[in-house]
Nucleic acid binder design. Structure first.
Lengths: 226, 226
DNA sequence: CAGACATCAAACGTCTAACCTTTAGGCTGG
DNA sequence: CCAGCCTAAAGGTTAGACGTTTGATGTCTG
């Protein structure tokens, strides 16, 4: 044939793209099982091997989880999480905290610039829940609220890329949080920096927001080292 | 059988791990072609389908590139680049620059804290090369030296995680650089912030280093917007 | 002798078809 | 009501075959 300008993209790559699109569009919601390989083979018109190559690519990047004998589930809407988790295992707490400091500071600064009234309300509510959980001794709820607060700050930054990065690294960040609270003598309440950060964001004071995060995480780093 | 504590990891995942190890250990250097599928099948003792699943996972994450009719090549030593490049396409220059600002600032601060004499020497050399390239009108060399400077700062931070992140996002960052210099009226020399940054790092002045980066990228952002 | 063209082998791309292992959930019997 | 068995469904793995692309080799022509 005279056409075919050059080379078609491999079928398996198209499959990967279609699967990713199904997840990102929300057609396959988080934590839900996607159709079986047999159904997908028919739906996409490819052989099982080709289909599996596409699935495995997304599974490796953390977006899907394949459970033998059961099915395949959506585990994330971004493809960073797998690589992020893998990278985390190779680095020390100190280095992780340093990277987090960079992202957190920037998130706080941008949140102070762009946060909406709803964002502030949500942040306050999370802090209240956090204090209550600590008072009630519910460690799990405390960690969830604490992480929720940080994640909401990232969202309030109005920068989807930053937010997505934060979410992808979130599981590892959160793990660090849990590690902290398990140490003897840890007190989750006195760190009032969270309130100060919420204040700074509401007041649209970028420098104060950034400084607060810097102070919080640095004291956290010292506490880990000490 | 009484053994088999639970479930063995899928063979394809083991293959992926072994391939990644070959790359990260340097046994398969960057830009070099790895053994053919036939050889790997024999070497690893798995079928072609299983092997290809493993290869495709790493190819999708940007570590390998499979070229039909030719072979498979090593394209990166980290697995972030693929996801990073894909994420970049979905976000605006503004948001990219904001994230970069966060990472760059932290890198500069840490470099001021940890940089060795060799680091400083290398930074100075790159700045010299950068100026010469600009004077000679060699745009490509200018961009290479400019990016090399930023990457070296990240390396000098002494934080491997930060450095790896920076490298993974590097291609996209670098692309932004090229976009800038193509605009009419752009002058690559007057931005003397690079020299100031090198000064601050050598003087071990963390705040000055961070402030310089902040000033540079913010002016860059304004220039893009203007 | 240099360049254009034909040829070939190596390597990846895809498909088919089968069999094994694991898992979830229903069924059955106590 | 619970424990254990049983089975259908789903993923894991293998084997072999054939198509397509690419890079290199060799040959022919001007």
């Amino acid at each position: 044939m005279a056409l075919s300008p050059s080379a078609r993209a491999p079928l398996a790559d198209e499959v990967t793209a279609k699967l990713r699109a199904m997840v990102q569009s929300g057609e396959w919601p988080l934590h839900q099982r996607i159709p079986s390989e047999t159904e997908l083979m028919a739906g996409l018109g490819v052989s099982r091997g080709t289909l599996r190559e596409g699935i495995k690519a997304l599974a490796h990047s953390g977006m899907l989880e394949v459970r033998r004998g059961d099915g395949t589930y959506v585990r994330a809407t971004s493809e960073l999480s797998g690589a992020a988790r893998r990278m985390y295992q190779d680095h020390t707490e100190q280095h992780i905290l340093e990277v987090r400091l960079g992202l957190d500071t920037q998130a706080a600064r941008l949140a102070a610039r762009h946060a909406t009234a709803d964002d502030v309300t949500a942040l306050r509510a999370l802090l209240t829940a956090r204090d209550q959980a600590w008072a009630g001794g519910d460690y799990e709820a405390w960690a969830r609220a604490d992480w929720g607060f940080h994640e909401r700050v990232a969202q309030a930054s109005g920068n989807p890329l930053l937010h997505e990065l934060y979410l992808s690294f979130g599981s590892a960040f959160h793990q660090d949080l849990l590690k902290q609270q398990r140490r003897p003598g840890f007190d989750g309440r006195p760190h009032e920096g969270h309130d100060h950060l919420a204040d700074a964001i509401e007041a649209r004071d970028e420098d104060a927001a950034a400084a607060t995060v810097d102070r919080n995480l640095n004291s956290c780093a010292e506490w880990l080292a000490g």
